[in-house]
Design a protein around this nucleic acid. Sequence first.
DNA 1: CGGAGCTCCTGGGGGC
DNA 2: TGCCCCCAGGAGCTCC
Length: 288
Amino acid sequence: MPELPEVETVRRGLAARVSGASVAAVEVLHPRSVRRHVAGPEDFIARLVDRRFGVPERRGKYLWLPLDSGEALVAHLGMSGQFRIFDRAEDSDLGPHVRVRILLASGADMRFLDQRTFGGLAVDSVDARGVPTSVQHIALDPFDAEYDRDQAVARVRGRRTELKRALLDQQVVSGIGNIYADEALWRARLNFARPTDALTRAQGRLILDAAREVMAEALQLGGTSFDALYVKVNGESGYFERSLDAYGREGEPCARCGTLIRRVGFMNRSSFFCPRCQPTPRRRPSSP
DNA sequence: CGGAGCTCCTGGGGGC
DNA sequence: TGCCCCCAGGAGCTCC
């Protein structure tokens, strides 16, 4: 489940390995992985071959490599996307999940793998600030130099929904997925179902600062890896999983109060929380 | 037009 | 042992 820390870990890996590299050839092994490139796989390939990559950038869970053509190669990892870089292309034993291969002029082999194909690549135009068209609707993430926390708080409080829904809405604040939403809520001692329009400004700041903090700590450890579905560009795992306080800890004692962590369904996914530290709100989002 | 539900996808794992 | 079904969930899309 790549969220901001995992995507940033990948971005750093790509920055170290492919910044300034030129594309020699591209193979699209699964068309679904380039479905966001509406002009089709052939056009996708043509816009990459002989182009040179700049330094990769990221907003929220999107990352992109600027091209010397003025466009950008945009990537979203979805649920199971990975980039792997090999020094030399080896045609044998590609494995079942390699979806796109980008062979570099240096001889290196840059592979996009994606078991569930929720992720994908596209070549996209960029605006004057270098942001791809397909990323412009995404809110700034908490690590963006232009991020304004109080504006993000205002967006959360302006919604009429439940707090976790707002945290997961990439147009409110980007980069937060199910794991870090639960972790931030646990740290802020707020229940996922808290109505956003009843949240105080202080609570809004608390939850957004907690999200930023937990993602910063995860990034230090190279992100969260549950299994081989998320690895860095060199194939190594991150170590944040052992630091999680709520996510995946159903039935284990809360690190603050010892109450057993509960899991409930919410938005077609699981939410983990401490029923004592994060009590369920009495009323549903306010109604007339 | 904001909010909420649906849908895409595959492999691992649990249950029987 | 084998098979079936559920589950993981990001985000675009559709409907209300």
